[in-house]
């Protein structure tokens, strides 16, 4: 059934369950009457269009919509903003759409680690280098959960067992092998000395990842932090470690130990930012940097971050580009170690 195939989108954001549903109509509302900018700086002369390269209701869609809503509500953008869903190919369709908009600076799209992972897996011909990084907005982190009665109490317990009997331990996640949930686990495990290619990873969609953890079919659940909070509060699962550098703030999440504090010097950031078509001018980039910076500092965005448990992580275009380059390299190395080489870029 097709709906269960949206797994690339599925691991995409911390709210991977959210996007596990890829299908569905998209929608957009391009309002705005346009308006000219008389200043020398770039000012869009028609309404902006933010593309979510996935279906309505998914993770990218959520970021795109809350950003659009925030930019309008806070009066940061007057020209009007439309959100358009360009679904398909785990993002590839949306990316090729934006790539064709060279010279149309009104267009941008929401991105996260799959923008790096999908091309590396050979599933899209465009990589981040084919776009103009505008701004990164937020960061989110992965969590590794086990059932409450599990014998492991911290990541080192788990990884020690894994080194000895990798075949006995099943790791479950929503996304496909080589994508988010798999790679975040592989990265931390590798940091602890586990051979990444020995990890037994099963991909399960439509809520069955958590189900399989709870019924004992799987031993470890690799997911986003948000998904684990309620389960931890109910006492059904415990979180062995999260992929953030430092502990997060918040009621339950502050109890989640980081991998770093357990002596594993690895992190994994699920970043969320905006990129535009290739070869945008400096003035255009500056316009977006300013716009997104303002959004990032707004009350609206602060509230949004809180309700989704996202961390503030603004980067301007240059920082974002450097960050992407580093991330891509580390992902490529990791994929090689995991033993997935699909001839991607």
């Amino acid at each position: 059934m097709k709906h269960s195939k949206y797994w690339i989108g599925a691991g995409v954001l911390s709210l991977s369950v959210l996007s596990a549903c890829g299908s569905g109509g998209g929608d957009s509302s391009s309002g705005g009457d346009g308006g000219g900018g008389e200043e020398e700086n770039y000012e869009p002369d028609s309404s902006l269009e933010i593309v979510a390269p996935a279906g309505a209701g998914g993770g990218w869609d959520t970021v795109a919509r809350s950003a659009a809503e925030g930019l309008e509500e806070e009066g940061i953008v007057d020209q009007g903003i439309g959100v358009v869903n360009r679904e398909g190919g785990g993002g590839a369709n949306g990316w090729s759409y934006i790539h064709n908009q060279e010279g149309n600076p009104e267009y941008s799209f929401v991105a996260s680690p799959p923008l790096l992972l999908v091309p590396l897996n050979g599933q899209s011909e465009y990589s981040y280098e084919d776009f103009t990084p505008l701004s990164n907005m937020i960061a989110d982190y992965g969590a590794f959960a086990v059932t409450e009665d599990s014998e492991w109490d911290d990541l080192n317990d788990l990884f020690d067992d894994m080194k000895e009997n990798p075949d006995d331990i099943t790791v479950v996640g929503e996304s496909s092998p080589g994508s988010m949930d798999h790679m975040q686990f592989a990265k931390i495990a590798a940091g602890a000395g586990v051979d990444p290619s020995s990890i037994k990873y099963v991909s399960a969609q439509d809520g069955s990842a958590l189900t399989n953890l709870l019924n004992g079919q799987a031993d470890v659940y690799s997911t986003g932090i948000t998904e684990t909070v309620e389960q931890v509060r109910a006492g059904d699962v415990k979180v062995l470690g999260i992929t953030a550098e430092e502990r997060l703030e918040g009621d339950t999440v502050s109890e989640f130990p980081t991998a770093t504090e357990q002596g594993i010097e690895e992190t994994f950031v699920n970043w969320r930012g905006f990129l535009g078509p290739p070869n945008m001018s400096d003035a255009e980039i500056a316009y977006y940097e300013e716009t997104f910076k303002e959004l990032s500092e707004s009350d609206y965005w602060q509230e949004t971050r809180q309700s989704y448990a996202w961390e503030e992580n603004y980067m301007d275009s240059e920082e974002f580009e450097e960050f992407l380059a580093e991330e891509e390299e580390s992902m490529q190395d990791l994929l090689d170690e995991v033993g997935i080489d699909r001839g991607g870029e």
Binding site: D27, S30, G82
Partner: peptide, 8 residues
């Protein structure tokens, strides 16, 4: 579609 359902 466009006005009521917001589907472009």
């Amino acid at each position: 579609f466009t006005q009521l359902l917001n589907i472009s």
